[in-house]
Design a protein around this nucleic acid. Structure first.
Length: 315
RNA sequence: GGCGCUAUAGCCAAGUGGUAAGGCGUGGGUCUGCAACACCCUGAUCCCCAGUUCAAAUCUGGGUGGCGCCU
């Protein structure tokens, strides 16, 4: 363990677990600034669906990498990592404490583990040709190409996972190297940070699901449907098109489903998303978990959190 | 009160004599440039009782529940 690496704090957990609130409180406590690690809050607009904090909720704490990209721009974990490292350096140079807050597991892990993504930026045309190939010859045939080119990578990617098979082949095509080798090399450089990760979760899954359901209802009260309608009628989105809360409402706009049905769908998709987030974070055993249903008051969570980070010498 | 229909996993639902499809949800998992993505794994002895038969979720009778109609 290197001694003089700067300390960085991260708050992760499933959606609706209270990350935003805890992050702000910690920032106030530690004289810190927040760097969002959320693949949707990155975008401008989409305020309600992505549950961006209001100015009031931010309590004057600077929030970085949030609300700065146009919706028609593609963004990825590789882009995120570059920007986030910059922000951390910047915050540290001003003597402030960087706090990463978000639910996008890939972003957080890539940043904290200092993953260096391969040079391959993505060749749209080649990518399309791979999908065409799969369409014409079957996904088995495409998978076979990966097995031949990089058996180690093929072993780790399921034959049905077209998206990943295509990406691996694309990287191999562009770099002339094996995907599995590049992946191996990407971990070589040690992280420049000494990170402490706080994870928020509920012992009782039902507690989390109730919060999600309630929050979706609040979003609707706050104008989610109008926000969605505007996006639906406006420019096409790239990465942002994946956001939960918009695509589920389209059947309603097209008069193919009732509003209630669509809202229920949003709740369900959000619950499933939370579950996936949990499987992602749970495998990281360096996370200090805080169970939100153990506390009746928010301040108790903060107190418990202070104790957790005190162990790492942060306070 | 009478007549008809129906009863399969949390929900929807195939199967009409040979030993329970599928979908959804749920739970678990994978994840290195779209990650709020993509993908994988996951469950039942068929309402109850009796009978027919080598063999019944599948046929017969009765019971119970639901749906519809009639007086």
């Amino acid at each position: 363990m290197m001694q003089n690496k700067p300390k960085v704090l991260a708050v992760c957990g499933p959606t609706a677990s209270g990350k935003t609130w805890l992050g702000v409180e910690l920032a106030r406590l530690l004289d810190g600034e927040i760097i969002s690690a959320d693949s949707m809050q990155i975008y401008k607009g989409m305020d309600i669906a992505s549950a961006k904090p209001s100015e009031e909720e931010k309590k004057g704490i600077p929030h970085h990498l949030m609300d700065f990209l146009d919706r028609d721009v593609t963004f990825s974990a590789a882009d995120y990592v570059v920007l986030a490292h910059e922000k951390i350096r910047d915050i540290l140079s001003r003597g402030k404490f960087p706090i990463i807050v978000g639910g996008t597991g890939l972003y957080i892990d890539s940043l904290l583990n200092n993953i260096t993504f391969s040079e391959s930026k993505g060749d749209e045309e080649y990518r399309r040709s791979l999908y065409d190939y799969a369409e014409k010859n079957g996904k088995e045939a495409l998978y076979k190409r990966l097995v031949d080119a990089d058996p180690e990578a093929a072993e780790q990617i399921h034959i049905n996972n077209l998206v990943r098979v295509v990406r691996a082949l694309e990287v191999i095509h562009e770099t002339g190297r094996k995907f599995s080798e590049l992946k191996e090399e990407s971990r070589r450089v040690e992280s420049p940070y000494d990170s402490v990760i706080i994870g928020l979760n509920a012992v009782d899954r039902g507690v989390l699901y109730d919060r999600i359901n309630r929050r979706v209802d609040e979003m609707v009260e706050n104008g989610l449907v109008e926000e969605a309608r505007q996006l639906w009628q406006s420019s096409p989105m790239k990465t942002a098109a994946n956001a939960i809360g918009y695509k589920e409402l389209i059947p309603y706009f097209e008069n193919k489903a009732s509003l209630v049905e669509c809202i229920d769908k949003i709740k369900q998709e959000t619950r499933r998303y939370a579950k996936r987030q949990l499987t992602w974070f749970r495998r990281n055993d360096s996370i200090e978990w805080l169970m939100i249903d153990d506390f009746s008051e928010k301040c108790e969570i903060l107190e418990k959190c202070k104790k957790s980070i005190a162990k790492y010498g942060i306070i």
